[in-house]
Design a protein around this nucleic acid. Structure first.
Lengths: 351, 351
DNA sequence: CTGTTAGCGCGTTCAC
DNA sequence: GTGAACGCGCTAACAG
């Protein structure tokens, strides 16, 4: 590979002139400029981003660490981040922690060694103190993605999980459901914690029938599955709500094993959801995360942070879309008087 | 950030000793070693990957360009590449060409500027000559992923598309189908070209009923959709086969619009497919691409290429899994004599 | 076993 | 408008 020196020699100018032609950083006579460009063409010269970065102490790259590259929602965030980054001339270094705090810490370390200009982190459930330290140190700037929390010392992009879950459950209540089962999962994860809170917000309003509301939570998928199986046997719920796609998979499997059909026997709704839900049965009511846009927004925050390093941290919450489908809409409640009455009240109160 | 010089000063040794402690590249006395480690601890020193790479002329990074980061199959490949790369101490720079030759060329250029040690390319349909040139130049080493072709001047990882399609169609023929419709898509894409060839391999054996076999191809999804709508109206096919997930989506929509139910009115099968197909109806017979493993294999080839730069290019074809589901298995052919007879023949011939 | 030093390729002063 | 020279932080070759 040709270097800038060879280009300069061939063009009979100094390396600094070549550099200035390349970067447009000062005026150069059209004639010499042409000589330089010709020499570049002739030698097939290509800038060395390494040397350039070393000298400028800027890499024009950002790092992204996701907690589960296999999950479609995260894949979409990656997609969004790549799109936005490429659009701004930033290259993307991608790492996957696979929900392993140790791998996450190593990934962050590697990215810092590579001197990324900024860092976007979708942290894992039990993120290590090492990572926290870097987040707080904030050099380079960090944006937390998806799993955000109040009072974080840096910029964040999340979804309005609590609100969306509340809206979803209120809708279900309006339709007359009183016996709901939430598959909440690992509530140490902020996202799932927020969704649980939203569920409680909504169900708290129906004091009377509250004993009919059940919540299955736990960090282990196996445990959740077992408990869910028990819960489904113990009581007939009219609607099951899953707080994420993996949990929805477990729930749907459990329902199938229990011989319960959606929506004939029980209604069903989930967060995140499945692609192309409209094409398949059961067609599932879904709170859809704007995953791509969240990735884009994260890059946006990072760039604004580059421009204004001192301003105080901001949190962006993107709105989720409630996609109503037959899994809840076609479920026919055998209306008891109480339920119908409650529903009427809720409607009247404008939920 | 502390540099190696400060560490050396604090430890009262030379920078080269620090370097050797860091890299384990020569023996150093336990005592001085400890001094160095303490100094590193105290200063919070971290290696600068940029300077290191510049000096060693190796970045320990690889570049990956995919043609559609939004497609789950590619997302899985990315996942596999990341996993394998991280496992070998390589960081991954990701770019998405979004099926745009120009973006692809820019992405490759950027990765070369960043001096990646190797390049993995899932090229877009109309890959530019610029990219071809780099592939041929082979510095750094290139591995073609997914969209491979005979006689490529570099290593490749693909799937056995032709074989798998042949197996799928032979299975369908065995079940008595004679009137098949293939949604082939953009046959300039090697993958789809191979699947089309496999389809023809299999159907060529049933000479008699051949006029019943239809193929819808074309680079534009919109055109495919329109043609498919016409084809479905023109003739009653017993089975529709989609050559990829996006095509499957179009096909399922067209079938729905035509009022045809899967599998009651028509059987259906696809390549790549949808996640969690077992949980939904229609539950679709799918030729599943080992996307993750393909990503892993690509990194493997790259590493072997690092070790042996001169050996001639190799192509790895990973086997695809045929997942039979109710979309084909529950379809009941109103058996004409001819069909049953043909099926018996095929069975006897051991397809 | 340890230190000195040259340069990897570039951008950027500071002179002219 | 142009060029010479320095240094970003590190490793490798050589010297002791």
């Amino acid at each position: 590979m040709a270097t800038i020196v060879e280009v300069a020699r061939l063009a009979r100018v100094s390396t600094s002139t070549v550099s200035h032609v390349l970067n447009g950083t000062r005026n150069v006579e059209p004639h010499t400029r042409k000589k330089v460009l010709d020499a570049i063409e002739k030698t097939g010269y290509r800038q060395d981003a390494l040397a350039r970065a070393l000298r400028r102490s800027r890499t024009d790259s950002i790092g992204l660490v996701v907690s589960d590259a296999g999950e479609p929602a995260f894949a979409e965030m990656v997609h969004g981040v790549e799109e936005a980054a490429a659009g701004r001339g930033l290259t993307l270094i991608l790492a996957n922690s696979a929900e392993d705090p140790e791998r996450e810490a190593r990934a962050v370390e590697t990215l810092l060694e590579r001197r990324v200009d900024g860092l976007i982190l979708a942290r894992c459930a039990q993120s290590s103190a090492v990572v926290d330290a870097h987040v707080a140190a904030d050099s380079p700037p960090v944006v937390l993605l998806d799993r955000v929390f109040d009072g974080a010392p840096c910029d964040q992009v999340g979804a309005d999980n609590r609100d969306s879950m509340r809206r979803l459950v209120e809708h279900l209540l309006t339709r007359g459901h009183r016996s709901l089962l939430l598959v909440a999962g690992d509530t140490r994860v902020p996202t799932l914690q927020e969704r649980l809170a939203g569920f409680q917000d909504a169900t708290a309003r129906v004091g009377a029938a509250r004993e009919a509301v059940a919540i299955v939570e736990g960090p282990e998928f196996g445990v959740v599955r077992a408990e869910l199986g028990r819960a489904l046997g113990a009581q007939a719920h009219t609607c099951v709500v899953a707080a994420s796609t993996p949990l929805a998979v477990i729930a749907l499997e459990c329902l199938r094993d229990a011989g319960l059909k959606v929506p004939d026997d029980v209604a069903f709704a989930t967060f995140d959801g499945f692609n192309h839900s409209d094409l398949f049965q059961p067609s599932i009511t879904t709170v859809r995360q704007p995953a791509f846009d969240m990735g884009v927004a994260a890059v946006g925050l990072l760039l604004e942070r580059f421009a204004a390093p001192k301003t105080s941290p901001r949190t962006t919450r993107l709105q989720q879309r409630l996609e109503l489908r037959s899994s809840t809409e076609d479920f026919v409640l055998r209306a008891t008087e109480g339920a119908t009455q409650d529903a009427a009240e809720l409607d009247a109160s404008g939920a």
